[in-house]
């Protein structure tokens, strides 16, 4: 357990003149579940988007599963294939059926035979309980179903790490639960997860560690019980009092 799967060292990032990430240091060990929370604009989405290089960091180093993120495109593609990501807006491919959404990347990126990919996809869709919708198009599904499909799509690449970027923020309240359930199941199966979310109930249930960010800095990082029982910094206390 001594070898962390993600190592983030002294990472700085600017959007123009605005510094979004300030000297971030973070290590995530295998099979750990991390929840990142904080007010909007605190850089938490940017942080996890840096991990699969949807955003570039300008200083410091990020090492994912032994590979450092550099300019090398092949390297980045390889890391992205190992790191699944679920977006706030689902971002399913609307021109493809649910099944094709799930099989596209395994077939063309991992060069999996079509039959195997479909079998895998149906299995993953079963896990999130939408295998009966496999031949519909994303536009025909509800938001919660779409998000579950997005989770299945990411899982079809058999990633080592899953990143969740506010997966329930764009959903109707009654659909949040079905997505969270899918995530809880995934956590119980032992996936390494980094979740940006405001769902504190989810954090209490599955997270090993909670990170609180504000103004581009990690303010507090503690194990879950500790974090909710006695937060150290005043900023965290204020945040928790507002959100709980």
């Amino acid at each position: 357990m001594s070898d962390p799967i993600i190592q983030i060292k002294n990472v700085d990032k600017w959007f123009g003149d605005f510094q979004v990430l300030k000297d971030i240091n973070l290590e995530v060990e295998k099979n750990k579940k991390i929840v990142v929370c904080g007010p909007s604009g605190s850089g938490k989405s940017t942080l996890i988007r840096c991990i699969n290089r949807l955003e570039e960091h300008q200083k410091g180093s990020i090492i994912v599963d032994g590979n450092e993120l550099t300019e090398d495109t092949k390297n980045i593609e390889q890391i992205r294939a190992e790191v699944g990501m679920v977006f706030q807006q689902f971002n399913l491919f609307p021109h493809l059926s649910i099944l094709d959404n799930c099989t596209l990347a395994p077939i063309w990126v991992k060069k999996m035979p079509k039959k195997d990919a479909e079998e895998l996809a149906i299995n993953q869709l079963k896990q999130v309980q939408i295998d009966d919708q496999a031949h519909k198009y994303p536009g025909q599904l509800s938001g919660g179903q779409q998000q579950r499909c997005a989770i299945a799509r990411a899982l079809c690449m058999e990633p080592k790490i899953m990143l969740f970027d506010e997966p329930t923020s764009a959903l109707d309240p009654e659909m949040i639960k079905e997505v969270l359930d899918a995530m809880v199941n995934l956590a119980k199966a032992g996936m390494t997860m980094i979740v940006v979310t405001h769902e504190m109930g989810f954090a209490k249930e599955v997270a090993d560690e909670v990170i609180f960010m504000d103004e581009g800095m990690i303010i507090e990082k503690a194990n879950t019980k500790e974090f909710f029982a006695n937060p150290k910094s005043d900023r965290t206390k204020l945040f928790l009092s507002q959100i709980l």
């Binding site: 699969n52 593609e77 977006f87 807006q89 971002n91 491919f93 021109h95 990126v109």
Partner: peptide, 27 residues
Amino acid sequence: LPRGQYEAAKSLGMGYWKMHIFVILPQ
């Protein structure tokens, strides 16, 4: 096309050509 489509394709490990041929251009 929304930026999310590019990001989703990238996050699945697709390179420039695969992303464009299978995701971006058809739409």
